[in-house]
Nucleic acid binder design. Structure first.
Lengths: 191, 191
DNA sequence: GTGATTACTTAACCTAAGTCAATGGATGTA
DNA sequence: TACATCCATTGACTTAGGTTAAGTAATCAC
C-alpha cells in the first residue's frame, strides 16, 4: 500500500531510503465504507488524506443544493481548506465508493517535518505545483462554455462518468443537471 | 521597503532576528515602468515577485483575445505557474502601473532555504493557505452568476476599479465587456 | 417483489450573456 | 489642433443555460 505513496512522491523527487523510512513511520492507513462522511460542515478538520483507492467528493450547501467542489480519486491528496486552522469547515467530504486512504494529522506532520526536513521541502514543491495546476483549471473554466467544460472533463477524467452520479458532475461543471442532459444530447446528435 | 515583506510574513509566523537577516540577505528590489512586460508567452520564467507597490496583471491569449488571469497588487506574491520548471510560460505578466517589486529566483531560493529551513517551512505554510484561498475563489466563481461575481469583486477589491480598465475586469470575470457594461447599468437602475 | 425514492430526460418558456454594429467620449500623438 | 486609437455604452438580435413541470428509468428498502 505504501508503495503507492512512494510511487507518487517519486514524480517529484528521488526517493531515498530515508524518505522511505519516514513514510513508513508516519503514515496510518484506513478504510471507509461508501457513504461515510469524513468531514462535515462545521467540523474542525484534523486530518488530511492520500487516496490509495476509491473516490471522495468534497461539496458544500448553497441555496439548498449540494455544490460539488472536487472529486478526488487514486493518487490524489486531500487537504481540507480548514485543515490545521482550527476553524470550522465550510465543506464536506463524502466517500462515493469504498475507499482506502492514508491519513495524516498536523502533529504527526510537524514531527515528521522536524525529523525529515527533506519531506517538508518536498511538500512545499508539491504545494506549489498544486497551485499552478489549480490556477490553470480555474482559468480554463473561466474561459470555457459549459459544453467545452464537459468535453474537457470526459477527455481528462473519463473514469469519473462511470463512478459518480451525473447530477454531481453537473454541479462540478457549474451547471444544472437538466443542462448537462441537454448538452450531452446536443453532442450526440452532432456526431 | 523590506519592512513590507516582514509585515506580510508576520501574518504567518513570528519574525525572528534570523528570518529578518535571511530576508535582508536574499531579496533584491527593482522598479519597472507602467507597460513593462515582465514575462512573455513562450518565455522561461526565472523570477518570482512580491509586490511592494503597483499593479501587475497576468493574462494569456485565447481566440485572439486577452484573457485576464489575475490582478496582483500590494502585498501579493506572483509565482508564475512555469516558475522553476524550465517550461515555456503560457501566460504574460504586464505592469499596469509603475511597480516596485522584490524579486526571487530558484537558485537564490534554494540557497536561502538550505540556510534557513524555517523559511522553507514558512513557504510551505503560505503555499497551503494560497491553495485554500484559490479553491475558495474557484468554488465561489463556479456557483455565482456574472452579476454576483461583479458585486463580489467591487466588495472585496474596490480599488481595482480605479486602477484597471473595465474590459480587463470583464475578462477577469469571465464575461464580455458589453455584458459588464449592461450588468453595471442593471444594478444602477435597480437601486 | 412491491412501493418509494432518487436519478435522468424531455419540453415549453424565460432570462441574460454573446454577437454584431454603431455611437460618443477620452486619450494620445503628430 | 486635428487625427487616430482605444474604450465604454447602447441597441437589435441570437443563443444557450435556468426554471418549472412532467414523465420515465433505475435504485433502494422493506
Amino acid at each position: 500500500m505504501k508503495n503507492e505513496i512512494l510511487k507518487y512522491l517519486s514524480k517529484y523527487t528521488v526517493i531515498t531510503k530515508e524518505i522511505e523510512k519516514a513514510i513508513s513511520e508516519s503514515l496510518s492507513i484506513k478504510s471507509f465504507k461508501k457513504g461515510t462522511i469524513l468531514l462535515n460542515e462545521g467540523d474542525i478538520s484534523t486530518e488530511c488524506y492520500f487516496i490509495l483507492n476509491g473516490c471522495i467528493r468534497s461539496y458544500f450547501l448553497k441555496d439548498g443544493e449540494e455544490k460539488t467542489i472536487e472529486f478526488y480519486t487514486e493518487e490524489q491528496s486531500i487537504v481540507p481548506p480548514s485543515y490545521g486552522t482550527s476553524k470550522p469547515s465550510d465543506s464536506c467530504l463524502e466517500c462515493l465508493e469504498d475507499v482506502v486512504v492514508s491519513i495524516g494529522n498536523p502533529e504527526l506532520e510537524n514531527e515528521t517535518f522536524q525529523k525529515y526536513p527533506q519531506l517538508e521541502s518536498l511538500s512545499r514543491v508539491i504545494a506549489e505545483t498544486v497551485i499552478a495546476r489549480q490556477q490553470k483549471s480555474f482559468t480554463q473554466f473561466k474561459t470555457s462554455t459549459p459544453e467545452e467544460r464537459y468535453l474537457n472533463l470526459i477527455k481528462t477524467r473519463p473514469d469519473l462518468y462511470q463512478r459518480v452520479p451525473q447530477h454531481q458532475i453537473a454541479s462540478y461543471l457549474g451547471i444544472k443537471p437538466e443542462s448537462l442532459s441537454r448538452i450531452r444530447k446536443r453532442i450526440m446528435t452532432k456526431k
